[in-house]
Design a protein around this nucleic acid. Sequence first.
DNA 1: CTTACATGAAAGTAATACTATCAACGGCAA
DNA 2: TTGCCGTTGATAGTATTACTTTCATGTAAG
Lengths: 228, 228
Amino acid sequence: MSTSLRIEVNCRLYLRDPQETELGRRLIAESVRLIDEIGLEQFTFRKLAQRMQSTEASLYRYFENKHRLLGYLVSWYWAWLRFQIRFHTHNVPAAARRLRLILEILTRAHRDDPTTTELDEAALYRIVVRESSKAYLTHEVDEDNQAGLFREYKYLVADIARVVQELSPAYAYPHALISTVVEAAQKQLFFARHLPSLTDTSPDATEQCIYCFLEGLLFGALHPPEPA
Amino acid sequence: MSTSLRIEVNCRLYLRDPQETELGRRLIAESVRLIDEIGLEQFTFRKLAQRMQSTEASLYRYFENKHRLLGYLVSWYWAWLRFQIRFHTHNVPAAARRLRLILEILTRAHRDDPTTTELDEAALYRIVVRESSKAYLTHEVDEDNQAGLFREYKYLVADIARVVQELSPAYAYPHALISTVVEAAQKQLFFARHLPSLTDTSPDATEQCIYCFLEGLLFGALHPPEPA
DNA sequence: CTTACATGAAAGTAATACTATCAACGGCAA
DNA sequence: TTGCCGTTGATAGTATTACTTTCATGTAAG
């Protein structure tokens, strides 16, 4: 039935793999919609259970708490994005061209994609934009990091940073540059929607504006003005 | 007694101005320390009251909830930073030089400063780094924005963007560039401390590395390579 | 057939996020 | 001095959150 590719995330994010059961898959699909609707702070397993016609206890068998569920969702997204990037750039020889393709994917990653179904991609992307940084901006970062909960994000940054290194081997900050660009892609979209004075996008071409802004940022950093 | 400058923030952030009473000032000072220690999620007014030898009810007379308190603290920080920037750049004619000074302030803003006392600046800066984006990454952004709760941040970005515009009037994304740089200054510091594979800083010169990275980013964007 | 296991149902606990009431104190005004 | 106001403290109370526990039931696999 489901021919969609299987995205794997760190198993320490869940107690039981939600991909393996019908209830688990519904949990994921419905939680994406509910978190998108009411926000992470208002989201509870009780509300999710009610909406799914299931029970709190059942859901707690999949995830320790909602924070881990968030970690799962965003990790899943990073892994999916990484797959998208590999897929769309695997036979592009020029690093500069590959980098531009990646930037395009980063800035319009919320469009629905036929390979993965059952999931509201647009809602998931809104969750990534609004909530993903809360996965690591906690007092427990170091333990969570030790447990490998952020590795999908690290892999993504490392993959893209490698393209930067190929293009500009002398550039000293490839990881910082890419983590900045990835975060900015989300933040600028959020600002465009909610705090427009923090950005400079035209309302009817937000994504293109963000793309152009980030392209200038990225390639500007890699080809600096001659030190006079 | 207190000769320190008075930082004003949007009065809708609080129910009663905490600067005006002894209890209010203790509230601020102690909450900075406690949030820094245990993180925003674990922080409650009950714990703060216990630590201050006061009561929950008294503290709720100053702030509606801990989210507003966070908003107050980070707004205070942005206002303070803006003052620092004005103070240190007010008689520097060259926009490029002013921009570099601002970048320096942004990347070492957590050093203690003699003009403001009573407050643990280093702890406040750690709070800004870890928690500030949670002030606006909520489901209620739009209402909070309507109420003007983010105006200090907007003012700061607008101020710096004006310098960018002076330096490069043709550049199309001054606000996006500055909001990106301001956020990156914090994020890269957080990454350096907790998720070092997302950055490229040497452990003994983190701030300098971040400064150099951001300088390249900022001026690279403003002086793009000639379109061949 | 029975066993293992996933789920549902129900209840319970500790903590959180508040709100309400009232008494005590201190300052100031008549 | 008396009387009032406003701030704080003390106590209690409520609804919700974030879980955990126990047990019954249905179902799928051996």
